[in-house]
Design a binder for these strands. Sequence first.
DNA 1: GCTTTACCTCAAGCTTGGTTGAGGTACTAA
DNA 2: TTAGTACCTCAACCAAGCTTGAGGTAAAGC
Lengths: 146, 146
Amino acid sequence: MAEATWSVGRIAERCGVNVSTLHFYEKKGLIKSWRNSGNQRRYKPDVMRRVAVIKAAQKVGIDLESIKLAIATLPENRTPSIKDWEKLGTLWRDELNAKIAYMKKLRDSMTSCIGCGCLSMKKCPLYNQDDKLAIEGSGAVILDRV
Amino acid sequence: MAEATWSVGRIAERCGVNVSTLHFYEKKGLIKSWRNSGNQRRYKPDVMRRVAVIKAAQKVGIDLESIKLAIATLPENRTPSIKDWEKLGTLWRDELNAKIAYMKKLRDSMTSCIGCGCLSMKKCPLYNQDDKLAIEGSGAVILDRV
DNA sequence: GCTTTACCTCAAGCTTGGTTGAGGTACTAA
DNA sequence: TTAGTACCTCAACCAAGCTTGAGGTAAAGC
């Protein structure tokens, strides 16, 4: 059972994603499969954990490219162990901590800055916080140029 | 000075955004202008605060549509007061608090769940947390269907 | 054996939040 | 008056992260 091989539809069902998503992830290099004699995808069961981890990481705002890089640190030649996975978790937990801290800073500036006169100027703390960690990739950077 | 009218280029420069962004926001109904005799946009100075608020809200992960709805609560017939703006700030601060709380929950599940056996199943706390507040709009919802 | 379901590939489409470019008009400064 | 900017509109494009559809093959159930 532990070393069974899985079809794309079964993986999709178990992971709660569409088949097209699995195709997409494969094309992006996030997961791997081999083909059976009829050219259909077959998976090792650990792909489910990979998909689950991808989804978990996305939830905390990590994009697929970064997830791909992180996943690339997993061993190629053997099924990743609990320890291997935990390392990823730790990595992302740190990132998440940083994001939380950033959002707290934003929150604390929010009420005061939004009503105050500084908002469109370069002194405003809401603008001048380090936004390398910005949740949405873009949107940042812009207001510091004034 | 306080009641001066501004051209699109000057607003763009003061707010640190592109002219095209202001066109875009106007098309989306987030800001307003009128035209001079030569069909060029003219703005009241409070549009700068609007733009600034839009950018601030984006930083905390609020999408333009929600920002538009929030801005729509501002008075139409007069320049919004500090109090009006502060109401928005308070609203978003609450939203941000909820997001922070959500991310903390994710963080606490992260290390333990990622390595554990529950990750691809419906019992995993990492999946079954309320994800209405998900940072990235999509990506959520999916793993609860298993 | 036959039907239904699952799978395949490739291309095109969708959403958000803009940017870029073409072709043309208006304003400003010397 | 004449450059040189600044502005106008409209359409097309970009990136991420998928989804949808067309046209065709494989596998599974009765």
